[in-house]
Every structure is written in C-alpha cells, then in structure tokens.
C-alpha cells in the first residue's frame, strides 16, 4: 500500500474528532437512557433497563411531554406546508427580474441575520401592543416562519437555477396552459426538492427554541418543555425522551430511503440503454 503523508494522518485525526463531537453527545444520551432504575443523570451505569422509557409513558410529576410533542408536531406540519407553498411561489416569482426584486430579496434574507431572540421579543411585543393573545399557533407560527421562509426561498433559488427552461417551453409547445405547465411539468420535476424543503422546514420548526421562547404563550412546544425539564427533572427519563425522538427521526429518514430504493429497483426492471450509441 502507498505510504500516507503526515498531513493525511493529521487530517484523519481531525476528522475523527469532528465525528466524535458530532455524534458523541447523541450516543452518550442514548447509552444513559438505558440507565437502571436506581441510576442517575451521569455515569456510571447502575445496570441496564428500559425503566425510563416505561416511565416516559406514565404521568409525569412535572411537564406535559406528550402535550408538548403534539403541539410541536402540529406546529411543524403547519410551518412545513406554509414554507413549501410560499417558497415555491417566491422561487417562481424571483425567476424573472422585477422592479425592486433586489431590495425585496435582501429584505427577506435580512431576517436570517437578526438575532432569533430579538425576533421573538419583537413578535411578542407587537402581539401585546395590539392586545392579541400570544399562542404557539399564531405568534409562535409567525415567528418560526421568519426563520424557515428565507431558507426555503434560498433552496428554491438553487432549484430553479438548475431547472432547464426548455421543459416549460416543451410543455407550452404541447399545448399546456401556464397552470398546466406548473402542475404537470414543473412541480413533478422539482418534487424531490420540495420534499427536501418540507422536511427542512419541519425540522427547523421542530427544534426551534429562541424564536418560540417568547411567542409560544402558555403552552410549551417540545424544545421549550425539554428545556424546562432540564432544570426540574433529575432522572434519566429526559434521556429516554431524547433517544425516542432521535429513533423516530431515523425511522422517518429510513422510510424515505426505503421508498426511494424500491422505486429505483422497480424502474431498473425495465432496463436501460442510457449512454449507449443506439
């Protein structure tokens, strides 16, 4: 085998550290969530059990985990759908230059650099000013969109940059109306990216903290609830919650990969002459 340079090994060690930093915490929490019934929040493990997972499904002394999960899930879906619809429309609009398009673009992107906690504070303030009730589904929803919409729009810019306009011309040539072109050609072609934008919007909302902190009102979302629990709950049940939500995310990703793999396998049955000179 070829001799590797010192630089290679240094960079490999650096990369190993990076991976450890990335996944170490998750793995640590994963291990600690199987703590025995008598164990605490830190090592050493007092035996191994599923005790804290069972505990998770019982009535909690503090916090309303399942209520918070339901709210976060619903809010995530709301943000996801809104982000996809508005980003696609925005992306379509920005494909052509129009008067003020540059300024409008910077206005949208600026909301990404404003500190999240200030957005939260401001939205809460405005709602109070107008005598509106601060609630996760109104003020919380709005303040999360200030985060997900610019991201979604940026992704759509990248998507439409690569989009071959001749698909649309071919559709018009074939007699499709403007709407039919969007419905039957543009949307199906960019569908994989839309799933990406959707999942991205959902994830950003699902673990959003700062922007929701002062806009959620009396009912907490899951991140707020977990943060509250870290100061009150002193048992590994909080780790069990962490492990469970991570497993849930992995399950969803796995399902998508499986569907993609099955689709590719089904198509492959038809054979391919791609790249051949026939």
């Amino acid at each position: 085998m070829e001799r590797r340079s010192t630089g290679f090994w240094l960079l490999t060690i650096f990369f190993g550290l990076f991976l450890l930093f990335l996944y170490g915490p998750t793995i640590t929490i994963g291990i600690l969530s199987f703590q025995g019934p008598g164990g605490g929040l830190t090592f050493p493990m007092q035996g191994a059990s599923l005790h804290w997972f069972r505990d998770l499904f019982r009535e909690q002394a503090v916090g309303d985990i399942w209520g918070a999960f339901r709210r976060s899930f619903a809010l995530g879906l709301m943000v996801m759908v809104t982000t996809v619809i508005v980003s696609v429309m925005g992306g379509l609009a920005f494909r052509k230059r129009f008067a003020g398009s540059g300024i409008l673009f910077y206005l949208i992107i600026a909301s990404l650099v404003i500190p999240s906690i200030l957005v939260s504070l401001g939205v809460g303030l405005i709602f109070n000013q107008f005598g509106l009730r601060v609630h996760w589904a109104s003020s919380g929803f709005g303040s999360q969109l200030t985060w997900t919409l610019p991201f979604g729009l940026l992704i759509m810019f990248a998507v439409f940059n690569r989009f071959d306009k001749s698909y649309e011309e071919a559709a018009r040539d074939q007699g499709a109306s403007a709407w039919q072109t969007i419905r039957f050609v543009v949307l199906p072609i960019i569908a994989p990216s839309l799933i990406g934008v959707g999942l991205f919007g959902f994830t950003l909302s699902y673990d959003e903290f700062a922007r929701t902190l002062l806009t959620a009102g009396s009912y907490n979302t899951l991140p707020l609830e977990i943060y509250g629990m870290t100061t009150n709950v002193t048992t590994p049940v909080i780790y069990a919650l962490g492990t469970l939500t991570t497993a849930f995310s992995l399950l969803i990703i796995g399902a998508f990969l499986l569907a993609a793999w099955a689709g590719a396998k089904r198509r492959a049955r038809l054979g391919s002459d791609a790249g051949k000179g026939v």
Partner: peptide
C-alpha cells in the same frame, strides 16, 4: 411543433406518457 436541442423529454413521465402529453393537456 418543436423538437428541442436537448429533447426536453419530461424526466418524470414514461416514454408513452411523454408522447401522450399534448393529448392529456387537451
């Protein structure tokens, strides 16, 4: 009717559905 340089066949539709596209629009 136009045939495009890169053909612009709709990547998500089968060969048959590509050819039938204009009729579907009608």
């Amino acid at each position: 009717a136009m045939m495009f340089q890169s053909y612009a066949l709709f990547p998500h539709l089968s060969v048959r559905d590509n050819v039938a596209f204009s009729l579907r629009m009608k």
